[in-house]
Nucleic acid binder design. Structure first.
Length: 475
RNA sequence: GGCCCGUUCGUCUAUCGGUUAGGACACCAGGUUUUCAACCUGGGAAGAGGGGUUCGACUCCCCUACGGGCUGCCA
């Protein structure tokens, strides 16, 4: 017989959600919030749901919804089931508001917006902080006129509400600071505070992981859970991301939208890694895969202070992921990057040469623009455009070296060893260090002096093209 | 104004009463090298300030300062 002390209710399967409002692009902070929810659910065999909070008809647009989905998809975050539109659930929200009125936990308020605005203005003019108290809270139902009404919560006015937050700890809110917030507007539409609770409950959300700008809201929302007798989810309010100067991240800091980062050429795996690591730690782990992160990710590892974006570290992390990426996947992502940044796509020939040279390129680049720059030798057609340093490397002596090399290359074994034998012999016969030989070769082959290894370049573009470029440069 | 949250190297963080306060990025110096990148070695660099509690505080409590959030018929 089981020890009753050890008998626990079966753990509810984890259900998390990301619930952005479609008023613009996917903010990098929102992307990280989504990522945390995704990691938490995926690491526990749970479900990760997506809901669009589009109850504000003035500001919500389908374009914004599409941008958010694109951003999530680029980040590699997949969600379960259909995307839920909060707006489409408005009847259900109204139904719950009315149910609360019937239960006595909410009431109809007939005060008009004009009355409330006038009250606020008067209070402020009198130097007081305006806190509107509806006169309808304690009115007899029979005295209600037949007029438009909003539904307000009948907020508890004594005692305290405790938010047991998995990140912030135990947060106590004195109920006297809670107001009778409106849950259903006079036009019958729900407010955020109501909709979010009803939807989270109906969708079976067990863990609400969101920005800590909602920490205070959790107290108000818990009021709705209590009013309906619903089980309160686990709260986890995570700090927002700040700019390098410590201020809330905004446009003036540069890229704030997830899609901007794609256009800047950061690989998604590196972005996920960096974003995961921003404000969360697992010991000394710095570079890891999403699969590893899923196994490690835990709410208790989330820091309580806002983190600043550090582009240098982002690049560094991206470099590691770029280097370890699968060639085919990297090429695929590069193609998407070109499209996202409005650049022409690769020709078939460029694609083939790039694929052949990836082994020598991917561990030298941190971002796609950098990869492309290093891959210049494989992408260009003759004539090879020279930059100033490349031209400087092609003096008369250097051109003589290239001329002497050409016939030897025609008969060379086109392997690293074969090429090395020829180049080293040429260098030593002239009493030069190999570096003196490599510089003009780089210039001739890539039109640049900073390039991958000369051997790798020659192997990738092949004998004919190598000789042609040397001829061109030594004329 | 009221309420709530936060504060360890420049940055991201580890530490969960006892450590020479560790790692990573960045930076500096040296090494390696075929340029760049990478890599190797070394270096400087931190508990916001003030009170407590304790044999002992980065760690627990209080105050202050600074930063952030909420306070809407926005989300």
């Amino acid at each position: 017989m089981a020890d009753p002390q050890s008998a626990r209710p079966p753990a509810r399967p984890v259900v998390t959600r990301f619930a952005p409002s479609p008023t613009g692009y996917l903010h990098i902070g929102g992307g990280r919030t989504a990522l945390f929810n995704w990691l938490y659910a995926r690491g526990r065999g749970g479900r990760f749901l997506l809901r669009i909070e589009d109850t504000d008809r003035e500001r919500s647009t389908p374009e914004a919804t599409a941008a958010i989905l694109r951003g999530l998809t680029w980040l590699g975050l997949d969600w379960d089931g259909e995307v839920v539109s909060q707006f489409e659930r408005r009847d259900r929200h109204a139904e719950v508001a009315l149910a609360m009125v019937a239960r006595g936990t909410a009431y109809k308020c007939f005060s008009t917006q004009e009355e409330i605005a006038a009250f606020r203005a008067a209070e402020e003019a009198a130097g007081r902080y305006p806190v509107f108290r509806s006169p309808w809270r304690d009115a007899e139902p029979a005295t209600h006129p037949d007029a438009p009404f909003a539904i307000r919560m009948r907020a508890p006015q004594t005692g305290e509400t405790v938010i047991d937050d998995a990140v912030q700890g135990r947060v106590v809110i004195r109920n006297e600071t809670l107001d009778d917030m409106i849950v259903l507007r006079s036009d019958g539409t729900p407010t955020y505070m109501l909709a979010v609770v009803v939807d989270d409950h109906d969708m079976g959300v067990t863990h609400v992981i969101r920005g800590d700008d909602h920490l205070n809201n959790a107290g108000r929302q818990q009021m709705v859970y209590d009013a309906m007798g619903w089980e309160v989810p686990v709260w986890a309010h995570i700090p927002l991301i700040h700019g390098p100067d410590g201020k809330k991240l905004s446009k003036r800091h540069g890229a704030v939208g997830v899609e901007e980062y794609q256009a800047l050429g950061y690989p998604a795996a590196g972005m996920r890694n960096y974003l995961t690591r921003l404000g969360w730690a697992h010991g000394d782990a710095e570079v890891f895969t999403s699969e590893e992160a899923m196994g490690w990710f835990d709410l208790s590892g989330i820091g309580r202070a806002p983190a600043r974006l550090d582009f240098k570290k982002l690049e560094n992390i991206c470099g590691h992921h770029m280097a370890s990426a699968d060639d085919a996947a990297l090429l695929h992502e590069l193609t998407a990057y070109l499209a996202a940044s409005g650049q022409p796509s690769l020709t078939e020939g460029q694609r083939t040469r790039l694929k052949a040279g990836l082994y020598a390129l991917k561990d030298r680049a941190k971002t796609f623009p950098e990869l492309l720059e290093k891959a210049r030798f494989a992408l260009i057609e003759r004539p090879v455009g020279m930059d100033a340093t490349a031209q400087a490397a092609l003096d008369a002596v250097s051109r003589g070296i290239l001329k002497a090399l050409t016939p030897q290359l025609r008969d060379a074994h086109w392997t690293r060893d074969g090429l090395e034998a020829i180049l080293m012999a040429e260098a030593s016969s002239r009493g030069l260090g190999f570096g003196k030989l490599a510089a003009p070769l780089r210039a001739a082959l890539a039109g640049r002096t900073a390039t991958p290894s000369v051997y790798d370049m020659m192997l990738v573009i092949g004998r004919e093209e190598t000789i042609a470029r040397l001829d061109e440069a030594s004329d």
